[in-house]
Amino acid sequence: MTQTALITGASRGLGAALALELASTHHIIAVAKTTGALEELDDQITALGGAATLAPMDITTEAAMATLCRGIFERWGNLDLWVHAAVHAPPLAPANMIDAKDMSKSVATNVTATGTLITYIAPLLGQSGTALFLDDFRAGQPFFGSYGATKAAQIALARSWQSETAKTGPKVHIAKPDPMPTATRARFFPGEDRAPLADPTSQAKRILAELGRDA
C-alpha cells in the first residue's frame, strides 16, 4: 500500500527535493502558496511515476489547515509522514529596527502556524507516523532577529513534542540541513557564490536516510 507524505512548503528548495525523493514510495500531499510552482512539482512527480495531491493554501489560515487535515482523514484515514518545510524569511534588520509587520508575519508563519499544525496533524500520524522538522542555526546572529527568533521558537515546539512522544509516538525528527542555494538563502545573502553550497537533492537523500527510509 502506498504511504502518504504531507509536505508543507513543498513548492521549492528542500521541501520540493524531499517531495521528489519520496514520490516513488509515497503519495505526496503538497502544500504551498504558489500554485504554479506546485504544478511544476506535480509534473516532475508524475514524470517519476508518482502521484500528488496539490493543496495551494497558506498555512497561516487556520480554517484551510483544518479543511486539509479533515480531507486527509476522509480520503486516507491517516498520515505516514509530515515534512514541515514552510518558513517565512523576513528582510534582515537590526533588532532595534525590525518592522512590526515582518515580525508579525514571522510569528504567524514560523510559530503560530506550526503549533496549530501539530495539533491538527498529530491525530493523523497516530503512534506510528513521523514528523520531520528542519533546524536552522541563525538564532542570535546579527540582523537575523526576526527570522532567528521565530525559527528557534518553531524548533523549540518540535523538541517539546519530540520529548513528549518519545515513548508513545509519533516519531519527531529534527534534521539540520547544510546551507543550500534556496530562495530563502538568496534573500539573506544576495550575490553570494552559490557553487560551494549543498545540493538540495543530496540533502534530501541524507535526511531521509537519517529517518531510516530508503531514499
Rank of each mutant, 00 (worst) to 15 (best):
G15D: 01
E164W: 01
Q44N: 06
D102P: 12
L54K: 01
E21W: 07
I45C: 00
F189W: 09
P123N: 02
D214T: 14
G115S: 03
K167N: 15
D42I: 06
T201Q: 14
G169S: 05
A131K: 06
S106V: 05
A51Q: 15
I29C: 02
D178G: 12
P177E: 07
L132R: 00
I28A: 15
A55W: 10
M1A: 11
V111A: 13
P190D: 03
V172I: 10
K167G: 14
P94M: 04
A175W: 10
R213P: 01
T116V: 14
G145V: 10
I207R: 10
L38A: 00
A85Q: 00
A19D: 04
D214R: 14
H84I: 02
A156Q: 06
T130M: 03
G77V: 04
G212S: 01
S163E: 13
L20G: 07
W76F: 12
L92W: 04
L92M: 13
V111F: 09
G148D: 08
Q3K: 15
G126H: 01
T4A: 09
A63P: 04
E62R: 15
S104K: 13
R194V: 14
T168M: 06
D214A: 10
A108V: 00
V87E: 00
K171P: 09
A66C: 11
W76P: 05
A95P: 00
Q154S: 07
D99E: 11
T165A: 09
A113K: 02
A66N: 11
Y120T: 06
A204P: 01
I98D: 06
N78A: 15
A30H: 02
D99C: 06
V107F: 15
A64T: 09
R12F: 01
P56N: 01
D214Y: 07
L20P: 01
A16T: 02
A51F: 13
A131P: 06
V172K: 05
T53E: 05
L157C: 08
G145M: 06
E74W: 10
T182M: 06
I118F: 14
L14V: 01
R138A: 14
T182R: 12
H173T: 08
N96T: 12
W161M: 04
R187M: 10
T119F: 10
F143G: 07
L211G: 08
I29V: 12
L48P: 04
I29K: 04
S146F: 07
Q141H: 13
I28N: 03
S163D: 14
A149T: 15
R75Q: 11
A100E: 10
K205E: 11
G9M: 06
D199L: 00
T201S: 14
T46V: 13
I72A: 07
P181C: 03
G145R: 12
P94D: 00
I121W: 11
L22K: 03
K33I: 11
T109D: 02
H27E: 09
S163P: 03
R12P: 05
L79G: 07
G49V: 11
L117I: 12
M1V: 13
M97N: 12
T165S: 13
K176I: 12
A55T: 09
F133A: 08
G115V: 04
